[in-house]
Amino acid sequence: MDITGYFASILIGISLGLIGGGGSILTVPVLVYLFTVDTVLATTYSLFIVGSTSLAGSISYFKKDLINFKTAMVFGVPSIVAVFLTRTYFLPAIPEHIASLGRLIITKSTLLLIFFAVLMVLASYSMIKKDKKKEGDQTKPINNFLVVIQGVITGIVTGLIGAGGGFLIIPALVNLLKLPMKVAIGTSLVIIAVNSLAGFAFSVGHASIHWSFLFTVTSIAIVGIFIGSFISTKIDSKKLKPAFGWFVLAMGIYIIIKETLLK
Score class of each variant (00 low, 15 high):
51 G>N: 08
89 Y>D: 11
105 I>E: 15
38 D>C: 09
236 D>L: 03
146 L>S: 12
97 H>G: 15
187 T>Q: 12
162 G>R: 06
150 Q>I: 13
256 I>M: 15
232 S>N: 11
166 G>V: 06
83 V>S: 06
13 G>K: 05
111 L>H: 06
216 T>E: 09
226 F>L: 14
122 L>R: 05
173 L>A: 11
67 I>L: 12
72 A>Y: 12
100 S>G: 14
15 S>P: 05
73 M>Q: 09
8 A>N: 00
149 I>A: 15
255 I>W: 01
69 F>D: 04
4 T>F: 13
141 P>I: 02
79 S>Q: 08
120 M>P: 01
251 M>D: 03
218 T>V: 07
151 G>T: 12
178 K>S: 14
107 T>H: 07
27 T>W: 00
255 I>E: 03
129 K>S: 10
74 V>S: 12
15 S>T: 09
229 S>E: 13
27 T>L: 06
216 T>S: 14
76 G>Y: 11
7 F>M: 02
225 I>Y: 07
193 A>N: 11
145 F>M: 12
88 T>C: 14
39 T>L: 01
261 L>E: 03
64 K>P: 07
194 V>W: 01
142 I>F: 00
117 A>K: 03
82 A>W: 12
206 H>N: 15
253 I>L: 15
59 I>N: 10
51 G>I: 08
60 S>G: 12
215 F>C: 04
142 I>W: 00
102 G>E: 04
58 S>G: 12
79 S>I: 11
70 K>D: 10
26 L>H: 00
151 G>N: 09
1 M>A: 12
29 P>E: 02
192 I>S: 07
53 T>I: 13
201 A>D: 01
77 V>W: 06
241 K>E: 03
263 K>Y: 09
251 M>E: 04
